[in-house]
């Protein structure tokens, strides 16, 4: 019968129209900005810099190695290395970025900076409402605007942040253990030097001398 296909289609639209009042599955849109869909844990928008502790300048993990600057495909990162050094999370003196700019009007959210960073210093934010009335300066984020605390990182990417913390803690523990062992060895050595034990045979080949 001519028109049968159209009627069949109409039945389908009627089903969907009626269904949209009762079924969440058939009505998937929400009224933004009053209603919001929660972002996914893996979601990424633009990068930010992680710092530990409460002071962003002191706790900044970035050591200004400039790997992200080099690997960034659209070249939206600009880093100037500091002249002096500050201690990092294990206490080792490191350079820090005297200037760290990300131009988010150029950034394409590809996450390659995060992948190549060996210091877990740069991560992806989930904040997407970045509208500004200044097209140039407003979209050029400096290091203060980019710095976000580790707590914030835990809030937006809990699983990933836990993994990162575990890795950093184990690194720190290893570094501390190494430092401790070195200190002990130094202490033992100085003790040895002060009181040479005759029972201990001297090394046959002078490796240290």
């Amino acid at each position: 019968m001519l028109g049968e296909g159209i009627l069949k289609g109409m039945a389908e639209t009627a089903k969907n129209f009626a269904g949209s009042f009762v079924s969440e599955d058939r009505l998937t849109t929400v009224e933004y900005p009053e209603q919001r869909i929660p972002t996914f844990e893996n979601a990424r928008v633009f990068p930010f810099l992680v710092y530990d502790g409460s002071d962003w300048a002191a706790g900044m993990r970035c050591v200004a190695c400039q790997i992200c600057e080099k690997e960034c495909p659209p070249k939206c990162i600009y880093i100037e290395k500091s002249q002096d050094k500050k201690p990092d999370f294990v206490g080792k003196p490191q350079f820090y970025p005297a200037r760290f700019d990300i131009d988010v009007s150029v950034c394409m959210s590809c996450q390659i900076c995060v992948e190549v960073c060996p210091f877990e210093a740069i991560k992806m934010d989930t904040e997407f409402e970045l509208a500004t009335d200044n097209r140039f300066g407003g979209l050029l984020l400096d290091r203060e605007e980019l710095a976000k605390s580790n707590e914030y990182y835990h809030r937006i990417h809990p699983t990933e942040a836990d993994e990162v913390d575990a890795r950093l803690n184990s690194e720190k523990a290893a570094a501390e253990a190494k430092a401790k062992a070195a200190a002990q060895a130094a202490a033992a050595k100085s003790a040895d030097a002060a009181k040479p034990s005759p029972a201990k045979p001297a090394p046959s080949t002078g490796g240290e001398d």
């Binding site: 070249k75 939206c76 600009y78 700019d101 131009d103 150029v106 097209r135 300066g137 979209l139 050029l140």
Partner: peptide, 8 residues
């Protein structure tokens, strides 16, 4: 382009 560095 607003990028404040580089050859650009």
């Amino acid at each position: 382009e607003p990028t404040p560095h580089d050859a650009v």
